[in-house]
Design a protein around this nucleic acid. Structure first.
Lengths: 109, 109
DNA sequence: GTGATATTCAACCATTTGGTTGACGTTTTC
DNA sequence: GAAAACGTCAACCAAATGGTTGAATATCAC
């Protein structure tokens, strides 16, 4: 159980991986397409995807020669519950969140 | 802004540090007392506290020769908001959470 | 002021992490 | 079947991480 917390939080600690997750919010993507915006080798992205898969934050399914990456939002649930104990976080303002996420995406890949 | 996410998530990725945060939920503690339940040197705990402080998850205040550690719940807010986007997490059941936290504390130090 | 207590510092060590490059195995396309 | 596209593997590297020990620095208590 806490193994999940280890791997989930560790996975989220990297800005490249968070940016990948944010990209996958929009839609499933092939590995090559995930890698495209980043200034880094395909192999490096492939490793990041292994980490994200290990944490259960995404799943990967191979169809033909294309491996599709899919967000798995449930994996964050346990971690989210853990976090909520440390304060009373007001409900997310979706407008604020959209701006926040846009800034994240622009700043980090 | 995303620097916070890096340091906060990275800090949370270590079970010792999460256990420390859970301990500090109950009350402020001196460094020596924080270190007591762990099977690891005081210096190692001191380093973990540096990481937690760097992430803003705790603050430390020296009074006399004792350095008090205090939980700073606000630091998790940004990270929590980020996480909430990836799924609809039902409201935390406090009973579940108590049991979860107890298990965390027992399993990890 | 001497000694004990509280904490950090410094040097060191092993392991992990995040990246590279080049070769390799599949699947598709022509 | 040859060539291109998709993705991983293997070997390597530098830097960061998590731990150790022993010395150093304050502070408190007597």
């Amino acid at each position: 159980m806490s193994m999940h917390l280890d791997t989930v939080f560790a996975a989220l600690g990297d800005p490249t991986r968070r940016a990948i997750l944010a990209m996958l919010l929009e839609d499933d993507m092939a590995v090559t397409d995930v890698a495209e915006p980043f200034d880094m080798s395909l192999a490096a992205i492939s490793k990041h995807l292994v980490v994200l898969t290990g944490a259960g934050l995404i799943s990967q399914e191979k169809r033909g020669r294309v491996k599709w990456c899919k967000l798995e939002p449930d994996a964050m649930r346990e971690a989210s519950i853990w976090m909520q104990s440390f304060g009373q976080f007001e409900a997310v303002n979706l407008d604020d969140f959209e701006r926040f996420l846009a800034a994240e995406l622009k700043a980090e890949p």
